[in-house]
Design a protein around this nucleic acid. Sequence first.
DNA 1: CTATCATGTTACTGACCGGTACGTTGCAGG
DNA 2: CCTGCAACGTACCGGTCAGTAACATGATAG
Lengths: 229, 229
Amino acid sequence: MLLTGTLQERETYVPTGNIVNQLIGTPDMKSIEPTIKANDASPPRAAERILQVARDLFYRQGIRAIGVDEIVRRAGVTKPSLYRSFPSKDELAASYLRHYELEFWERFDEAVNAHPGDPRAQIVAFLTRVGKRTQKPDYRGCGMTNAAVEYPEHGHPARVVSEANKQELRRRLRAMAAEMGAGDADTLGDGLLLLIEGAYISGQLFGVGGPAQSVARNADLLIEASLKK
Amino acid sequence: MLLTGTLQERETYVPTGNIVNQLIGTPDMKSIEPTIKANDASPPRAAERILQVARDLFYRQGIRAIGVDEIVRRAGVTKPSLYRSFPSKDELAASYLRHYELEFWERFDEAVNAHPGDPRAQIVAFLTRVGKRTQKPDYRGCGMTNAAVEYPEHGHPARVVSEANKQELRRRLRAMAAEMGAGDADTLGDGLLLLIEGAYISGQLFGVGGPAQSVARNADLLIEASLKK
DNA sequence: CTATCATGTTACTGACCGGTACGTTGCAGG
DNA sequence: CCTGCAACGTACCGGTCAGTAACATGATAG
């Protein structure tokens, strides 16, 4: 019998392609354009357009479902323009997710800042907005969660971004649960995380009218039960 | 500017390929082999081997990540053998999911049957086992949930199976919540579904030691809070 | 012995995958 | 005006994608 033995599994990511600067690379690097006057109404640079289109398509259709050809076609540019700004499609996906994460923390901190010193109200406020967003007809869940599902390989650039975000979210939720004075803060924090992830998934699975619309209410119930212990 | 206008989005699945019988097609059709004596130690039929390999690879790596060439190579068969038994890769994926769903309901009903007339214990028993499974090192979540993430297109064969399963699960959870006597049974049922989906996702995102291990405890807390209302 | 038929095979298709070598354009500074 | 250089495009790479045409084999039924 053929094909026995040497069919290794590839559980860890090994990159392909070259090394170039990437948009939203590591931290800092706030602006895209290097030397443009503020009043300049110039059309967006190629890299910017590419990332913009990629963010939209990757989120709505999934990363694996979208080829680089379609991205550059819709961006009105050509492939070398993409590969001059991004080392690979995988790194373009990672850039998309880094951008997504930025927006995520903006939303999160907005809810936090709206209720200073009241972590329970912060959570409920955040989840109320999540619940609302899941009821939009074209809701597609959390880009980072979806990317982790699409790329189970350890070390894949997209997964790395997603995992780091979820770890940090878990840390903050547990801290907030402790701040509430929960008997078992880690369990409550984790329970809230489960509800959040469940809302992301159920939102795109059930669409409008799905269980995700009750995420804030359920979180509040769970908090209540956890504080009485 | 080029490329305006006629770039339609394709949100609904349109099939490609021919029409053939499929393994685990619609209901019934219990056995694979049509005419084989029971004592026969013959090697598994091609279609059976294909589905077996596909189930393993689709679950572990994802459906989009696996090509039909790899499936037939690992199954030790060739592509026409696959396409004689399955109309398309999409339908092969649907067959994988139908099989997955069967196993899912086996696990679910096992927990239900272990605690007759006690829906709360049924849920907790089921989620205790889910929590345990999420702690296995190679846990990859729920195959149906993952497939729905991979295929957002309405009407895709894989997504159809997943959506139907989740709808039915939601129905049963709400019914069990009502049976418990919850004040707002639909909200509790939906909350339990959120926890379950959250456990599936978090299990594969965090690996061992992740928040999914607390899903049963959190579900019990949520039930308690919901019954007191 | 032969016809049938399911199951196997080799070899191929056109489209698309991610990625790249190399030429062209346009604009700034000397 | 010319040079230099960054930003872009043309045209192509080998490999893989899902899917198929045409043929071989092997067991069974008559």
